[in-house]
Amino acid sequence: MTPPPDRRQRKQVLLRLDPAVYEALARWAADELRSANSQIEFLLRKALSDAGRLPPAPGPLPRRGRPPKNPEPPG
């Protein structure tokens, strides 16, 4: 089954971090109610934007928190 055209597949990347860097990142993410993964994406998007390298139409950031129990059907 292919995803709807407005929903792009997310890329998976293996990332190796120093444990102290990961712990600091995880604490920061928790302070902002994000997962460590979402915090990394947020920071990378900000860095790309600040450097003028953010693609013109990146997909939206995932929403914070738990997904809704009854997602609304598209349309």
Rank of each mutant, 00 (worst) to 15 (best):
M1L: 09
T2N: 14
T2C: 07
T2D: 07
P4H: 15
P4C: 12
P4R: 15
D6M: 05
R8N: 12
Q9W: 07
Q9Y: 07
R10S: 10
K11W: 14
Q12S: 14
Q12W: 07
V13K: 06
L14W: 10
L15Q: 02
L15F: 05
R16W: 03
D18Y: 00
A20H: 04
A20K: 03
Y22F: 12
E23L: 06
E23S: 12
E23N: 07
E23I: 02
E23T: 11
A24K: 00
R27F: 04
R27I: 08
R27N: 06
R27E: 06
W28I: 06
W28F: 11
A29P: 11
A29T: 04
A29V: 04
A29Q: 02
A30N: 09
A30F: 03
D31T: 11
D31S: 12
D31P: 01
E32W: 06
L33S: 13
S35D: 00
S35R: 05
A36H: 08
N37Y: 07
S38D: 05
I40T: 12
F42D: 00
F42A: 09
F42G: 01
R45G: 04
K46V: 08
L48K: 08
S49G: 08
D50W: 07
A51K: 15
A51P: 05
A51Q: 15
A51C: 14
R53C: 14
L54A: 15
L54T: 08
P55F: 10
P55V: 11
P55Q: 10
P56N: 12
A57Q: 09
A57M: 07
A57H: 10
P58Q: 11
P58W: 12
P60W: 04
P60K: 06
L61Y: 03
P62I: 01
R63I: 00
R64C: 01
G65P: 00
R66N: 01
P67L: 00
P68N: 01
P68D: 03
P73A: 11
P74E: 15
P74G: 13
G75A: 15
G75M: 09
